[in-house]
């Protein structure tokens, strides 16, 4: 249940972020463990390409990086790898406390998220205030 919600959320975040490179296709990179399967593609309202990478680099061409930490690259390493580049980073409380720009948590049986605008600004991404209004917390 949460998985499907998260999959839908992942495709929706870019709509609330400005500064991501344009392109007809939304590239979603997943670094680490995930249970999504084809859920992301199914949930997306736009064309989405999901790539599962062992490690992410700025050259990976990701718009969104869902980072749970792989054998090759920890969450922290992955975040550091794309820091300063226009990649919307998403982390999950289920995969540790390290937070990306958006950090999924499950609160009261609902999938919610924290937002870190400092990291986003560092990557020259502008997160919508509408998004911030829904966040459990915002780090500025």
């Amino acid at each position: 249940m949460d998985t499907a919600v998260k999959a839908a959320f992942i495709t929706k975040f870019p709509a609330f972020a400005q500064g991501l490179p344009d392109g007809g296709v939304l590239n979603v990179c997943i670094v680490g463990q995930d249970d999504f399967g084809a859920a992301i593609e199914r949930a997306a309202a736009t064309r989405v390409v999901v790539r599962r990478l062992p490690a992410v680099t700025p050259a990976s061409g990701c718009h969104v990086a869902y980072v749970t930490g792989s054998a090759r690259q920890s969450v922290r390493e992955a975040l550091a790898a794309v820091a300063g580049h226009p990649v919307l980073t998403i982390t999950d409380a289920g995969a540790g406390g390290t937070r990306g720009m958006i950090h999924f948590v499950v609160a009261g049986e609902r999938v919610r998220f924290h937002v870190d605008t400092i990291q986003a600004e560092r990557s020259r991404l502008q997160l919508s205030s509408k998004l911030l209004a829904l966040a459990l917390s915002v780090r500025r």
Binding site: V5, F9, K12, A15, F16, R110, F113, S128, K130, L131, A133, L134
Partner: peptide, 15 residues
């Protein structure tokens, strides 16, 4: 539509 786009997108029924 602008006001409810995020709550709709992220299924925040309360908001």
């Amino acid at each position: 539509a602008g006001a409810i786009s995020a709550p709709l997108a992220f299924e925040d029924r309360t908001t």
